[in-house]
Amino acid sequence: MIRANFIRTTILASTLLAVVAAPAMAQQAPQPPTLTVFGDGIATAVPDIAVVTLGVVSEAPTAKDALAANATDMTAVISAITDAGIATKDIATSGLSVNPVYSDPSKDPEGRQQVTGYRVQNQVTVKIRDLAKSGPLLDKVVSAGANRVTGIDFDIDKAGALRDEAMKAAIAEARRKAVLMAEAAGVALGPIQSVQTSEGGGVPIFRAQMAMKADVSTPVMGGEQQISANATIVYIIEPLKK
């Protein structure tokens, strides 16, 4: 009897769910037709920041001597950087290593490789907020003892306005395409169903590699930098009104 009541209750509950769900399913309106468009936007500006990575490489018979020599030269290099007006907050150590230097095994009768000394590499990344100082600064640090300048990158200090400009351009391009496609398809654009946007990173159009020595001040040219954005807009489309 208990089992029969359980089965009867289950059947009744299932029947009630079906009765409740049926009107809800019947009330679901068909989804309106939509048009999805994509737009890309680019904003270009001249960089106003240079980021330089430079350093000192020192070698000596012992690790202690190599570290001492490197510290002396690196202190002189950092002094040259700060004397050029660069704030200490814009100077950051980006690499420090101590490695043994090995002999060439091909020159040993038994093909042995021996430690002949130690090499210390210390490098800093310097943010230069006045591009006009870039060339003279590089000349000063090389004269002070920097024997490695790996390159220079450029950036934009206040890129927010540039990103906004790229985003507006992307949305405007998507809207332009929507109007064009709707006219060609013979439909009218209705309300916007959704808008999605994303930003791309800054793309340097120019990147310089610096010479180690020069008879005149090292030329530094920032070129231009692009910031990109894209937008996706979904419109509800409607028949044209006659």
Rank of each mutant, 00 (worst) to 15 (best):
I86A: 10
V142M: 08
S228F: 11
I237E: 01
V98C: 10
Q28V: 12
I128L: 10
G186W: 03
E59A: 14
I152E: 04
L131T: 02
E165D: 12
P23W: 10
Q31T: 10
K158P: 06
D73H: 12
M221F: 12
T150G: 10
R175S: 09
L162H: 03
A22F: 01
P191S: 15
I128W: 05
A188W: 02
P30F: 06
Q209N: 11
S97N: 10
M167P: 02
T53S: 15
T93Y: 10
V52G: 05
L54T: 08
L16A: 09
V101F: 00
A68T: 02
L189V: 00
R163K: 15
Y118L: 03
F6H: 00
V124G: 01
A50Y: 05
K127D: 11
P204E: 12
I192V: 15
S94I: 06
A161N: 02
I81L: 12
A188N: 08
Q28Y: 09
T232E: 14
V203H: 11
A29P: 10
V179Q: 13
E110T: 05
R207F: 11
P23A: 13
A92I: 06
F6N: 00
M1T: 08
M25K: 08
Q123F: 10
I205P: 03
V46C: 07
L16K: 05
V124T: 00
A144H: 05
A63W: 06
R129G: 09
V77M: 13
D164E: 14
L189K: 01
A29I: 09
Q196T: 07
T82E: 13
D108N: 09
T232Q: 15
V19M: 13
A22L: 00
T93D: 12
Q113Y: 08
S198R: 14
V120A: 08
I49H: 03
N99I: 01
A76I: 09
A229P: 04
A146R: 07
L131F: 02
E59W: 05
A60R: 07
G223H: 12
V37K: 04
V149H: 09
I237Q: 04
I233V: 11
T72N: 04
V115N: 09
I156Q: 04
V234R: 13
D40G: 12
L67D: 01
R148W: 12
I11C: 12
T10G: 06
D65R: 02
A214T: 06
D139H: 05
A22T: 01
G41F: 05
I78L: 11
P204K: 01
F154Y: 08
E173A: 15
V179D: 14
R207G: 15
Q114D: 15
V20H: 13
A170V: 07
G41R: 02
I236C: 00
A18D: 00
A211N: 09
T82M: 14
Q226F: 01
T34S: 11
Y118A: 01
A69F: 07
T82Y: 08
K140E: 15
A60Y: 03
G151L: 07
D65H: 00
P191C: 13
M167H: 06
G41A: 08
S106P: 05
M181W: 11
